[in-house]
């Protein structure tokens, strides 16, 4: 990914300020991410990464698309907070599009833009430490913590097995920020 300094443009698509304040917070003395070469910039054209907050409201959508297109390629997106990850508590209301995945769908269908690499940071708001971890991941300093594997206990009954599969099918659909989940039954003690 980006091995050198990462310049970040903060794109608020209708967030409640909670995540935005935590983003500012990581630039304050306690966390001070500028020591990793990270800087907030005022113009999308100067940025390598977008710090994306908010569930994308209907009013904001055209402006968000404009700002999104203005960030040059290659870019990465840090989807900060539950709202940005999947729309949060208002994921299906009339005034909200529903998070960064829905935005990517619109971008692909209407403008033919492929979704960029995205790092999801859920939380309401996420702790500053979580945001720093994500930024460090973008810099290639640390590895992703989340695995795309879920372990379940082995079941004898075939019907129960079917129920579990239906449940995981649903999980794959709804938890779209963890793509390609695999289900394993060997107890999860591999490491």
């Amino acid at each position: 990914m980006f091995e050198k300094s990462l310049w970040v443009f903060h794109l608020n698509s209708g967030s409640c300020n909670g995540c935005d304040i935590e983003i500012l917070n990581i630039f304050a003395p306690k966390q001070d991410v500028e020591r990793f070469g990270i800087k907030l910039v005022g113009s999308p054209r100067h940025a390598d990464a977008i710090a994306f907050t908010g569930p994308v409201t209907r009013e904001c959508l055209p402006k968000v698309i404009e700002a999104f297109k203005a960030v040059p390629e290659p870019k990465i997106v840090l989807a900060i907070g539950s709202c940005a990850c999947g729309g949060g508590i208002w994921y299906d209301t009339y005034a909200v599009i529903g998070g960064v995945k829905e935005l990517y769908k619109i971008l692909k269908e209407e403008y033919g833009i492929e979704p960029p690499t995205t790092i999801y940071i859920p939380g309401c708001p996420p702790k500053p430490e979580a945001i720093i971890y994500a930024v460090a991941m973008a810099r290639g300093l640390v590895k992703q913590k989340q695995k795309r594997e879920i372990y379940i206990e082995e079941l004898d009954e075939k019907t129960e097995r079917d129920i579990v599969e239906i449940l995981f099918g649903e999980a794959k659909e709804t938890r779209h920020f963890v793509p390609n989940i695999t289900v394993k039954t060997d107890g999860g003690e591999d490491e």
Partner: peptide
Amino acid sequence: GFHVHRGMEKL
């Protein structure tokens, strides 16, 4: 304004 209208009251 009203860029952050999220439909909270109806919800």
